[in-house]
Write a protein that binds this DNA or RNA. Structure first.
Length: 247
RNA sequence: GCCAGGAUGGCGGAGUGGCCAAUCGCAACAGACUGUAAAUCUGUCGCCCGUUCGGGCUGCCUAGGUUCGAAUCCUAGUCCUGGCA
């Protein structure tokens, strides 16, 4: 196994599991989270920094705090950073463990799509055209129906139609998904939220339950994920067993 | 105690005689997704039946009333809020 991926919705203990696997397998973590890349707001973005037991060195986590809030960032940036982190880790003979809930990032890392590096059209974006105006610039039927009123996607569609993309190499990885029945997930989310609020987290108004649901919708469709229900006892052992089978 | 205002679907909040099963926001539920992805967007959202179209029932605090017709007007009651005591 060259790369290990731990994915799934929020509040499933991905980072905790990843850290414990890192110790067992001599690995380092790479955060696959679209918000943790921004500096600061550790509690709000739920950045965990797991330490090794009793005096050992902390488990290294890559891709926390790599840009300032407000700076331009996207899947494309993330994939580049993640790729270079992976090769750095592998060069030192260690196992890269990608851990996070941003499904698009993980998918793009393992299987880059052609349009990923087509840059935004600043001029077009500045114009702040209305949805109607944008729609006029797109051929009929050349758009996913549920995105027809989505300005971001409309803009992107126009941008990608002007350039030819280039597909990068795929990476092979063992993908582990953590999940739980919705009520369990909700309970864990609420508890985590409460804990962070007590630690001084600012109220964000972000609906973490809804986010978890959206993450589940995304991941459910992805192939090649080995799912584990964290509400089942002994799932960690099952995961270790799976990992050892792969080697 | 008096005066004024208010009670609307899970919540907030429109509507002040027919166009109302009731704008909208949130929550909920189901999805989409290829450079902002914890983002952005789509659909559903009183109950029952029928696939679309539709049909039936209940409904805007409670009880009466006016009216062809009421969430909307009138009367009484209950509760809440603000002002005066």
């Amino acid at each position: 196994m060259k790369i290990l991926v731990i994915c799934g919705p929020t509040a499933t203990g991905k980072t905790t599991l990843a850290a414990s696997l890192a110790k067992k397998l001599n690995g380092e973590l790479i955060s696959a989270d679209s918000r943790q890349v921004y500096r600061g707001r550790d509690l709000e973005t739920n950045k965990e920094r797991p330490a090794s037991p009793a005096g050992g060195p902390d488990v290294p986590i890559w891709l926390y705090d790599v840009v300032e809030p407000g700076e331009e960032f996207s899947v494309s940036h993330w994939v580049k950073l993640a790729r270079s982190a992976i090769s750095d880790i592998q060069k030192r003979g260690k196992l890269p463990i990608v851990v996070g809930g941003t499904g698009l990032y993980i998918k793009a890392l393992l299987r880059p799509f052609e349009t990923i590096n087509i840059p935004p059209d600043k001029e077009l974006r500045e114009k702040k055209l209305s949805v109607k105006e944008l729609q006029k610039m797109i051929p009929r039927g050349d758009m996913n129906w549920s995105d027809w009123n989505n300005p971001r996607r409309l803009i992107r569609r126009i941008e990608t139609s002007k350039h030819k993309g280039l597909r990068g190499d795929s990476l092979k990885a063992l993908i582990i998904g953590l999940t739980a029945p919705l009520p369990v997930l909700y309970k864990r989310i609420d508890e985590g939220l409460e804990r962070r609020l007590r630690s001084g987290m600012r109220v964000t108004g972000v609906n973490e339950r809804a986010i978890a649901r959206r993450q589940l919708v995304w991941f459910k469709k992805q192939k090649n994920i080995h799912w584990f229900d964290i509400s089942q006892k002994g799932f960690e052992d099952d995961i270790l067993r799976l990992i050892h089978e792969q080697d």
